[in-house]
């Protein structure tokens, strides 16, 4: 059951990701990103992290992808007429990808503990409570810093997108 779901979600995620990369039209690419994120959320659930799956969907699918679409509309980008990729860039990209994947396989092959199954968990997973406790106790300061970061980002975006900077 778990194995089947994992294969489905994993394939779904990867294929959608490939769709992002190869799509000529930016709007379609954004839609594939959305699909990929949904698959990712499924994987999160399989990993017993429903809270994060939820947050991912909310923040990424709800906010980030919407923002992408918004900007694409704003800039009124056409689908690219020319070839999407330059041949030299493609060659470099392929080189990097194969090198990366190759070394990844090699490393994972040598990583013996990762080959065993995940240990079983108690039936109830109270991750909302646990994450919340950690977040507001141990990670309180980083949380505040993060809040400040968001504020700074907000102000920065407003400044950047104002037409008259001075």
């Amino acid at each position: 059951m778990g194995s089947l779901l994992f294969n489905v979600f994993a394939l779904f995620t990867l294929i959608a990701a490939v769709g992002v990369v190869v799509n000529k039209n930016a709007v379609n690419a954004a839609m594939f990103l959305l699909l990929s994120l949904v698959g990712m959320a499924g994987l999160f659930v399989l990993l017993d992290a429903p809270l994060l799956a939820f947050v991912l969907l909310l923040v990424y699918a709800g906010a980030v992808v919407a923002l992408f679409l918004f900007i694409i509309m704003l800039l009124d980008l056409k689908a690219e007429n020319r070839r999407v990729v330059a041949p030299t860039a493609l060659a470099g990209g392929v080189l990097v990808i194969f090198g990366f994947s190759g070394s990844l396989f090699k490393i994972l092959q040598g990583f013996a503990p990762g080959k065993s199954l995940f240990p079983p968990l108690p039936t109830t997973v109270e991750d909302v409570k646990r994450v919340g406790m950690l977040l507001f106790q141990e990670y309180n300061l980083p949380l505040q810093i993060m809040a400040t970061l968001l504020l700074v980002a907000t102000v920065g975006v407003i400044v950047l997108s104002k037409r008259e900077l001075r």
């Binding site: 860039a89 470099g92 990209g93 080189l95 990097v96 090198g99 990366f100 070394s103 990844l104 090699k106 490393i107 040598g110």
Partner: peptide
Amino acid sequence: QAYAIFFGLGVILLMLLAF
């Protein structure tokens, strides 16, 4: 993107060296 390629090659090199 050319810079990114160098960057990626560097990452691969580091991975190979570290593992």
